[in-house]
Design a protein around this nucleic acid. Structure first.
Lengths: 241, 241
DNA sequence: CGCAGTCGTTACGGTTTTGTCGCACTTCGC
DNA sequence: GCGAAGTGCGACAAAACCGTAACGACTGCG
């Protein structure tokens, strides 16, 4: 069973979130302070950390960075951002290394979907997590997820945060079709109201920057997109069985 | 969005329940018979099944057991129990593998609460991804459902979304005849107003692309089509009579 | 404040997909 | 054999789909 650490200082929110996660079958740890959360993360190695930004002791941003600094902590991080009209930019989340974010206020249903989506991406990795796939490469493409860098034929290409996340998400479930709405919820987030056509645009931009490696991102007409390591357009000869 | 299948023979109840669930934002399928409900459950894979106990064709109990027998169907089941029975009914619901029950008569508010509660629990399942039959193959045909790709004799063939769905649907109940209207509701969907002759056209196109594997799709004159792994035309031993 | 970068949306157009129709052909009862 | 019903098949027009470019909103930066 998956272990989730909730770091949130507002007691009401902490209670509700913890209760619902437990009801949903997760093992839940809670912390009310940033430093306490970091300590628990290091000692308990949760699969997922739900992290508030405004925290006493240590800010969520700092906690996030500290967690990411420790290579032994391979779990995912979802940041809960107060939608107080300030810099709620998802970029903030990405900059410090979070995998996703949830704008406050959120419904439990929304949060559960996000949590589920996060675990879906990691394809059911048990608690004794081997070091996550921080880099992957094949053919002319090489991607360092942790460093947020990508190369094509040895030449580094510059991807925006969105493009990078789209690439990683596609690769996470390579050789499987991913529908547009699935990509939207995984890359953009559930509460984002963006049209599915937006996916197309970003796929196009991604392909553009990928250049020769663009063939890996395949269109499955009427369904979605698929990251394939055996692109049809690049396999002239049949495979053996 | 969550998909709910309502299996209920009383038309009034079916209408009210379906309408309210739709109003609540769910995708709703309906069936008036037990066997029809089971078929829809298998083909549409709803996240939740609302199941009446007293049903023509196949009792709710049997439907429930059949659903639970299929490991590919991971959705939840709520049984709607006629209160004119005794508390026995309540126990029955759990015995046959239902996740919850609602005593009749119930208010929509009550039912909606129960449904929401079910989804809270269901979202828990870290493995909602059905380990369904993602690939199947026999003879010269190989199909990767997740990747949405198909091969005949090692050579990849390009199927449209509809053709692919038709192929998978046929294969889902291989060696069994599927009538045209059945295929229409399973592949095209219930609200589609399409002629049954359309099925013929697409079967023809599918056969064409399948090439040597086209023999698997057999015509059952006056009824529909059948996906057979032992095609008549491929059986050398034949005795004319 | 202008500039550059990012991103979501919109519109356009080519291509593919798809539902329907008419007709030829097969199958079956007689 | 003959007729009727059922099915295969080719063609066609409408609709859907998707790549692409362009635009505007927004943000960070100098």
């Amino acid at each position: 069973m998956f272990k989730i650490l909730v770091v949130e200082d507002e007691r009401d929110i902490q209670d509700v979130v913890a209760y619902n996660l437990q009801q949903a079958g997760y093992e839940v740890l809670t912390a009310g302070r940033g430093d306490e959360g970091l300590r628990l993360a290091k000692s308990q190695r949760p699969d997922l950390v739900l992290l508030d930004v405004m925290l006493p002791g240590l800010s969520g941003k700092e906690v996030c960075q500290e967690i990411r600094r420790d290579p032994a902590l391979a779990g995912m991080i979802i940041i809960m951002v107060s939608a107080k009209g300030e810099e709620i930019d998802r970029v903030i989340g990405f900059e410090v290394g979070a995998d996703d974010y949830v704008p406050k206020p959120f419904s439990m249903r929304e949060l559960l979907l996000r949590v589920q989506s996060a675990f879906r991406r990691t394809t059911a990795r048990p608690t004794p997590a081997p070091p996550a796939e921080v880099t992957f490469e094949f053919g002319v493409l090489r991607v360092d997820v942790a460093a947020h860098r990508a190369w094509v034929q040895g030449r580094e290409i510059e991807l925006t945060a969105l493009e990078f996340k789209l690439l990683v998400t596609l690769h996470d479930r390579k050789n499987r079709v991913q529908r547009r709405d699935t990509l939207l919820s995984d890359v953009w987030g559930v509460s984002m109201d963006v049209t599915t056509r937006t996916v197309d645009t970003h796929v196009k931009r991604l392909r553009e920057k990928l250049g020769d490696a663009g063939v890996y991102v395949e269109t499955v007409r009427g369904v979605g997109y698929r990251f394939s390591d055996t692109p049809e357009s690049a396999v002239p000869q049949s495979e053996e069985g």
